[in-house]
Amino acid sequence: MDGRLNDLSAIPDATPKDIETLLAVLARGARRIERVEMSFGTVWIKRYGTERPIVWSRAQNALAHLFRKPFLRASPRLGRTAMVDREVRRIAAFAAEGLPVPTVLYRSDSALVLSDAGPTVSARLRTLKTADPAGHEDLLVACAAELGALHARKLCHGRPHPRDLFLEGGRIGYMDFEEEPEAAMPLPAAQARDLWLLFLQLVPSALEGETTAGRALSAWQESAPGDALSELCLLVAFLAKFLWLTRLIGRVHMGSDLRRFLAATRYLSQVLLAPRPADASKAGKDD
């Protein structure tokens, strides 16, 4: 690790006043994510170890063990310093592949100071939705295409939500590297889950529905490894078994998460899985 990351005075263009401000904000520890204005621009402070224990991650691992499905596993839970180490390491890995990422300006055992990456893809999509609907759809497709290119580099993000993506020079950039699914499952399974998680957001928000979803899936497939596609088919086949239960629950309360699960999983199952013949149970009876 670059030893300069432990030195606030090594931050490029930082003035003594900037350093004083950062020291005060870091010591205050008010919020997990905090925006700070410096003389040279905006930086973000990200603190670790403030999260409440996540029951869902334990449930994920229990389900993964019960069903013997690695893609259900949660990323390993780590202590504060190890979480900082993980994020710094993953940012460096993406940067080494020439991918746009925030710059790590400073690190301690429990916090990072990161450069501002600019507006997120999520914010850009909100603007395009009314100002340029065609551009909105093209950006969704671009997210899938860039994710496929990422997977071709033997990487995965872990949570490719549009709010964790940004635009830099016409390219999709990545931030928020808290997840590391490839540490809990084979890389192809982690990459398949990446695509499914992106489609949880993409399919419901696409203005042109399945037309855009189809373009996005094709764009991902152009670069994505074949074993990631195979794992995606296995993932979707498993999750599709629960569509009936999801619809049943939805009759009582159709929340946004449930709606996204239904839309994405139903679409992917339709295009990736071979349809079951209606008379499959009768096969061979007339021989």
Rank of each mutant, 00 (worst) to 15 (best):
H65T: 10
L198W: 05
R73Y: 11
R58D: 13
A111P: 10
H151M: 07
A152K: 03
R126D: 15
S205L: 13
T130G: 07
T212C: 14
A117D: 00
C233S: 08
F238K: 02
L155T: 00
G118H: 08
H65F: 02
D109V: 03
S39G: 12
R276E: 12
G226F: 00
F177D: 08
L5S: 04
S115L: 09
L235D: 06
A74L: 02
R193F: 14
L8S: 07
R4W: 06
L268V: 10
Y106V: 00
L187A: 06
L150V: 08
P186M: 07
L245W: 13
P225L: 01
L147K: 08
L66R: 05
L167P: 00
E222N: 10
D132Y: 13
A149W: 01
I172T: 01
P133V: 03
K241M: 07
R126L: 13
S115A: 11
G135S: 01
L202W: 08
E208C: 09
R28A: 15
L245S: 01
A59Y: 12
R159W: 11
A27W: 07
D286G: 03
P181N: 05
K17A: 15
S122Y: 11
R58Y: 14
L195K: 06
I54D: 15
L272P: 05
E179F: 04
P119D: 05
A134Q: 11
R259P: 03
S57L: 11
R86Q: 13
F94Y: 12
F71R: 02
P186G: 06
D109S: 07
A224K: 06
G79M: 02
K154C: 04
R251D: 08
A183S: 11
M185N: 11
R52P: 11
A189P: 03
L198N: 03
T50A: 08
L139R: 03
E182G: 04
E180W: 12
K282H: 12
I172Y: 06
H65G: 09
L248W: 11
V203E: 14
D286I: 07
A224P: 01
E179V: 01
S256Y: 10
